[in-house]
Write a protein that binds this DNA or RNA. Structure first.
Length: 675
DNA sequence: GTGCACGTAAACAGTA
DNA sequence: TTACTGTTTACGTGCA
């Protein structure tokens, strides 16, 4: 008995699932673009990188030549002019250090680390090699530059004691300038190269941590990975510190060779970092202060261990920890560098979080809209779906007002909210409560509702928060011909809802009961036997009744439309005025909009009609459907002779799928009363 | 408290 | 005879 009938209800599930995966990617791309948006050329590829590489080598050679010349001059002339003492540091420092320092991982780079997963191992290796070559060059440059500076300083000192000729001084100064310009140029080239690498998906790597890039390519970074990253970064820093005679090379922030602590801190805060409120450069002062406030709760101290990133020094007690903190993690270049890295880690995490949030939002949105998209496709279903959708939408919207507050069940909100699934789920758990919610006051289920939660209902044995009447109507409307045999209705129930795979006797009885009870369900004798159809007119009639006597309802409905998204005011107004136009456009156009519009229209229609219906059936505001169809469809109990009447109804219903009838149906009692 | 809507159960009849 | 289909009635529940 319960077999077959697989035709009409297409699984919206597939459509639901295929929809939107691309969105995230787009988002990511967009964010990446933002991150990089420093005016780089977009077309950086391996060729460009090589070019940059060659250029860098040339620049390096030039620098070496300059240095040699300088050294020769120094040897020949002895001491240099002291005059340039003042200017030199000023010139050197910013240019040299800032430019030459291997870059601390920038937020963009971190972001890429977190996101990148595209490159093939071969690509990665090539890029890594390039990167490492660059790093080597950087180191060479640094060493070279440091030596030069030391020599210059020595020279200057010597010159201070022994006078020099201004000529030589000028020469040296110009050479310095030229050299710095060369360095600057090199640095720019390097940066370009780095940017190109970034574009290719590889982050820039710090010298001394070649392994780093390999890890990050795994998808999202988990905290441990981040920690690992942190350790590597910090270790790299410290290594450089120890190796380099001059500590300042590490960090952009640690620019001045002779810079003082304050200047460093100020430099440390780059715009990015400051945004995070990370100004919390941990000065000893602060620490102690915070410590005073919270005696033994120091964020950097726990379980007897210093939690300074990469430290993990064991501290017997808090005092020793403080000691350790002040001694080992005082305000120096290393600490600031670490601090900066930490800032970036945090920033990256925040970025990741934001991104994930975006992703979630996109997913929610997609799941929401999704149901409508598939329906747009031209299939038997589509017709149905459009109808049902409109219905659903209408249902949702209307009821949502009066109902929403009271009824938790209604998966009401196809349009408005996000994870309808969740909503429904939660609602389902309510179980017993469900019934009231669905129809009456509210709207009967909408196909959209069902579609949106389709997967959930299919798999979870949760009672759908819809009335039998709503479900039956839905099933019928989803069928290509908008008519189903009882058995097909059964099948639809079992197919769509796991809940109805049990207790068949009970719910089947209920289905039959509803079919018979509600006038909106019309039994038609067909060639193949008896089929059930939905009489929308009945719905129309009924709806008003429920609402009837409640003038505020109309208001509510209209206001409810506002909830319903992006329908513009004009549209709503037009709908309010005349349901027909809206109806047409809505149904024809964008599915979502159509649903919404139809829903609204229904609502309005219902309300209007309702108001009008009290007086007479033929109200001006009525939809064509209504006008066309005889109001009384089912009034007379089904005599075989009357079969014709219902049939006509059926046809009409089919013709105007969009017509939402949301109003439901079912309250037979109402109908009867009206009739 | 009442009316309404809904769900559930059951009885009954008709039909294949 | 059985199972399905369809109708009807009764009862309970929740809500306005």
């Amino acid at each position: 008995m319960m077999q077959e009938s697989g035709t009409e209800t297409k699984s919206n599930g597939a459509a639901i699932q295929n929809g939107s995966s691309g969105g995230n990617h787009l988002l990511q791309c967009a964010s990446l673009r933002e991150g990089r948006s420093n005016g780089e050329t977009p077309a950086a590829d391996a060729g460009a990188a090589e070019l940059v590489h060659v250029q860098q080598q040339q620049a390096l050679q030039v620098a070496r030549q300059l240095l040699l010349q300088q050294q020769q001059q120094q040897q020949v002339s002895g001491l240099k002019s002291p005059k340039r003492n003042d200017k030199q540091p000023a010139l050197q420092v910013p240019v040299s250090v800032a430019m030459m320092t291997p870059q601390v991982i920038t937020p963009q780079q971190m972001q890429q680390i977190l996101q990148q997963q595209v490159l093939s191992p071969q690509q990665l290796q090539v890029l890594l090699q390039q990167q490492q070559a660059l790093m080597l060059q950087q180191q060479q440059l640094q060493e070279f530059y440091k030596k030069q500076q030391e020599q210059l300083q020595l020279q200057l000192l010597q010159q201070q004691h022994a006078g020099k000729q201004p000529k030589e001084q000028q020469q040296v100064a110009t050479q310095q300038l030229a050299f710095q310009q060369q360095l600057l140029q090199m640095q720019q080239l390097q940066q370009q190269h780095l940017l190109s690498l970034q574009r290719q998906g590889l982050l820039t790597i710090q010298p001394g941590q070649p392994a780093l890039p390999l890890q990050p390519l795994a998808q999202g970074m988990i905290p441990t990975e981040l920690q690992q990253l942190w350790k590597e970064v910090t270790s790299a820093h410290s290594a450089e510190e120890t190796t380099g005679s001059n500590h300042s090379s590490l960090d952009l922030t640690t620019t001045c060779v002779s810079s003082s602590a304050p200047s460093k801190t100020s430099l440390i805060m780059n715009p990015h970092a400051s945004t995070n409120g990370q100004l919390s450069v941990h000065t000893p002062k602060r620490e102690s202060l915070s410590h005073e406030e919270h005696p033994h709760s120091h964020p950097l101290y726990g379980h007897g261990v210093c939690k300074w990133p990469g430290c993990e020094a064991v501290c017997e007690d808090f005092q020793s920890f403080l000691k350790h903190l002040n001694s080992e993690h005082a305000l120096d270049d290393r600490s600031t560098a670490q601090c900066r890295v930490q800032m970036q880690v945090v920033q990256q995490l925040e970025l990741q979080l934001a991104k994930d949030k975006e992703r979630l939002q996109a997913m929610m949105t997609h799941l929401h809209v999704k149901s409508t998209e598939p329906k747009a496709t031209p299939q038997p279903l589509n017709l149905v779906s459009s109808v049902t959708l409109s219905k659903s939408a209408s249902e949702a919207s209307p009821q949502s007002l009066p109902h929403t507050p009271t009824t938790p069940t209604a998966p009401i909100t196809p349009v408005t909210q996000g994870p309808s699934v969740i909503t429904t789920t939660s609602m389902h758990t309510v179980g017993p409560i469900r019934r009231r919610y669905s129809d009456k006051y509210n709207v009967p289920i909408s196909s959209a509702d069902i579609a949106q939660n389709q997967e959930f209902y299919k798999n979870a044995e949760v009672r759908p928060p819809f009335t039998y009447a709503s479900l039956i109507r839905q099933a019928i409307l989803e069928s290509p011909e908008k008519q189903l045999t009882l058995n097909e209705i059964y099948n639809w129930f079992t197919r769509m809802f796991a809940y109805f795979r049990r207790n068949a006797a009970t719910w089947k009885n209920a289905v039959r009961h509803n079919l018979s009870l509600h006038k909106c369900f019309v039994r038609v004798e067909n060639v193949k036997g008896a089929v059930w159809t939905v009489d929308e007119v009945e719905f129309q009639k009924r709806r008003p009744q429920k609402i009837s006597g409640n003038p505020s309802l109309i208001k509510n409905m209209q206001s409810s439309h506002a909830y319903c998204t992006p329908l513009n005011a004009a549209l709503q107004a037009s709908m309010a005025e005349n349901s027909i136009p809206l109806y047409t456009t809505a149904s024809m156009g964008n599915p979502t909009l159509g649903n919404l519009a139809s829903a609204i229209r229904e609502e309005l229609n219902g309300a209007m009609e309702h108001t009008n219906s009290n007086e007479s059936d033929s109200s001006p505001g009525r939809s064509p459907m209504q006008a066309v169809h005889p109001v009384h469809v089912k009034e007379e109990p089904l005599d075989p002779e009357e079969a014709e009447g219902p049939l006509s109804l059926v046809t009409t219903a089919n013709h105007s799928p969009d017509f939402d009838h949301d109003r439901d149906y079912e309250d037979e009692p109402v109908n009867e009363d009206m009739e």
